[in-house]
Computed example of a mutant assay.
Amino acid sequence: MLISTPWGISQKIYQLGLGILEIQTLVHGGIGVPFSLRKKFPQAFQRLLESDWALQDGEYFWFERDQNFCIPVIAFPFIAKTRDRFLDAIDTLRDWHPDLYEALYGVKLTPANSYLLHIESVGFGDS
Rank of each mutant, 00 (worst) to 15 (best):
D95E: 09
S121A: 15
S51N: 15
D126P: 00
Q56L: 13
G58A: 11
L100A: 02
L37F: 11
D95W: 01
V107R: 09
I13H: 03
Y14V: 08
D84Y: 06
L104T: 03
E50W: 10
V27G: 13
V33C: 12
D88L: 12
L117Q: 12
D66I: 07
D66G: 12
L48P: 03
M1S: 14
A44C: 09
Q46T: 09
E22A: 11
Q15L: 13
G106H: 06
F63N: 02
F86S: 03
E64M: 10
H118K: 15
S51G: 13
T110H: 07
N113D: 15
L104F: 00
V107N: 11
F41R: 07
G32Y: 00
R83Q: 15
Y115K: 15
F69T: 00
C70T: 06
D126E: 14
Q15H: 12
T92E: 04
E64A: 07
Q15K: 12
S121E: 12
N113P: 08
D126I: 11
W7A: 01
A80V: 03
Q67R: 14
K12P: 05
I13G: 05
E102F: 01
E102A: 07
G125F: 05
W62H: 06
V73G: 00
C70W: 00
S127M: 14
V27Y: 11
R83L: 10
W7R: 05
P34E: 13
C70M: 04
P72N: 10
L93R: 02
K108V: 13
P111M: 05
L104A: 03
W7P: 03
S36Q: 15
A75F: 05
L117E: 03
F63A: 04
I3C: 05
T5P: 05
K40M: 14
P34G: 09
E64T: 07
A54E: 09
K39W: 12
I3S: 04
Q67I: 12
L87W: 04
V27W: 11
L104D: 00
D57I: 12
I74E: 01
D57V: 10
F76T: 01
P34I: 08
A103V: 02
Q11V: 05
R85V: 07
E50K: 13
L116C: 11
D91Y: 00
V33D: 01
G125A: 09
F78N: 09
L109E: 02
I13Y: 05
L117C: 07
G123Q: 09
D126N: 13
P72G: 09
I13P: 02
E59G: 09
V27H: 09
V107Q: 08
I119T: 15
I119P: 02
G30N: 01
A44L: 08
L2F: 08
G123Y: 04
W96K: 06
S121V: 11
L109V: 08
F61H: 01
I79E: 01
S121N: 11
L116T: 11
F124N: 13
S10K: 02
F76S: 08
L104N: 03
F124A: 15
